[in-house]
Amino acid sequence: MESTHFYRVLYVLVHAIYTIVEVIWNATLWIVREFELIHSRYKNVRKRLFTLSKTPKHLTVIVGHDDCSLRDLTNLIIWCIAVEIPYISFYDFKGKLKKEEERFRSMVESQKHSTDHIVWHRTAGTYKNGFVGRKIHVKILTEEDGRENIVNLTKELAVDRDRANGISIESINGWLLERFEFPDPDMGLVCGGRLHILNYPPWQLRLTEFFRLNDLSNITFSSFLDYLEMFSKCEQRVGT
């Protein structure tokens, strides 16, 4: 009995100390970042961009428990256009972003370069062809794009004998891809204190490289480049 009390006291103490250290550490990081911001805003960006050995084809951003500002998300889209990432998606398990989609869309349209083209994937057939300039595909994902899609596909297959005979990993992948519209994300930025995927569409996450973004607010192009550099260093072996 004595010893359990002792352990409990230690438990509370250790967690308390950690919390204090964490707060101080975050404050220091914040100060350092602000300092860097003032002094080296656009330094070396061009050079760093040039050294990226690869960039993701589909960047997916998992918005965590905290809300994020549309302005930061807009910045991400603009930067993705700049580094020629063709697909970006935002996953918000709370569904809030989906509700604000119109506002988000008009904000992006007002910020982008006039020759850039943004393809919003909401309902099928939103494609517009025949334009010149840079292009990016944008999609807002919710929980419904994940497991629910797999449930619906299973229901369809159950009443369609022809398709049911052809069930294989490849065919399921093809059918789910039709619904998901985007290639599997190869890079995932997870916002918030912990790496949780929060019910993200499971099938698509097979080979996604994950990076945790402590705080999406005030993310700079330079720190975005940090993540792209980390991504470009990842090497995939796929089993072999």
Binding site: R147, R194, L195, H196, I197, L198, N199, Y200, P202, W203, L205, R206, L207, T208, E209, F210, F211, C234, Q236, V238, G239
Partner: peptide, 20 residues
């Protein structure tokens, strides 16, 4: 040091904390 899930328990980790 790898930071992907490589086709492991994709369905089951919807609320799992990932540690790399």
């Amino acid at each position: 040091g790898e930071v992907r899930i490589s086709d492991f328990l994709l369905w089951q980790i919807s609320n799992t904390e990932l540690c790399f």
